[in-house]
């Protein structure tokens, strides 16, 4: 059980199953046994199409390698999940989200032309723009230097505080992990500890 509006941090060695667990919790993958409930919906008996409907407008993602749409601008990347969900004011909401992450001036810049830190901020703006109930982040600072990584972590937690979003983080970074409320340690696909 992930506590509401808190930050759950998943840690473990490489290959221990952190990303698999994150994917299962977010409904990106289907478990072969057991039951996963996301925002009151049981995911196990749902196909990908149905799980996508559960995620729509309620779940956000931040990836280690940003995963922005190349060939598009910063604001277009933020608009994407909003428009996929049928939002009518995607442009205004995206502008506001970029403003929140300090990238208002670079809204019309192609994402390829942004630095790594800026790209991750666009990714965070994209995740928070849909006002998600829960945000899944896979090594969000993994591709950034310590200083930028710290700034990104600050940003994520500040936005979490503002929006009341629940955070689920996979990270190797001890500094980031320490900011979590609940810590889960896994090894070879098994839960070692929860504190």
């Amino acid at each position: 059980m992930v506590p509401y509006q808190q930050a759950l941090v998943i840690q473990g060695a490489s290959g221990s199953g952190k990303t698999t667990l994150l994917g299962l919790m977010a409904g990106l993958d289907q478990s072969s046994s057991g039951d996963i409930e996301l925002l009151g919906e049981h995911l196990t008996d749902k196909n990908e199409e149905q799980r996508a409907r559960v995620r729509a407008g309620k779940v956000g993602f931040v990836f280690q390698s940003f995963q922005l749409v190349q060939g598009a601008t910063a604001i277009q990347n933020v608009m994407l999940p909003l428009e996929l969900g049928g939002s009518q004011d995607a442009f205004e909401l995206s502008k506001k989200a970029l403003c929140e992450v300090g990238l208002e001036a670079k809204a019309d810049t192609m994402v390829e032309q942004l630095s790594g830190g800026e790209q991750q901020r666009v990714s965070i703006a994209r995740a928070f723009a849909v006002k998600p109930a829960i945000l899944f982040a896979d090594e969000p600072t993994g591709n950034l230097d310590a200083k930028t990584g710290g700034q990104i972590a600050d940003l994520m937690f500040r936005l979490r505080d503002q929006s009341g979003t629940t955070l689920v983080l996979v990270t190797h970074e001890q500094v980031l992990a320490e900011r979590g409320d609940v810590h889960v340690q896994i090894e070879s696909g098994r839960l070692l500890s929860v504190d």
Binding site: A72, T73, Q76, M79, E83, A90, F91, D108
Partner: peptide, 12 residues
């Protein structure tokens, strides 16, 4: 630029 999906996404 006020709408991205679907036309402008395709172009990008």
């Amino acid at each position: 630029a006020r709408q991205f999906w679907l036309k402008r996404y395709l172009l990008s």
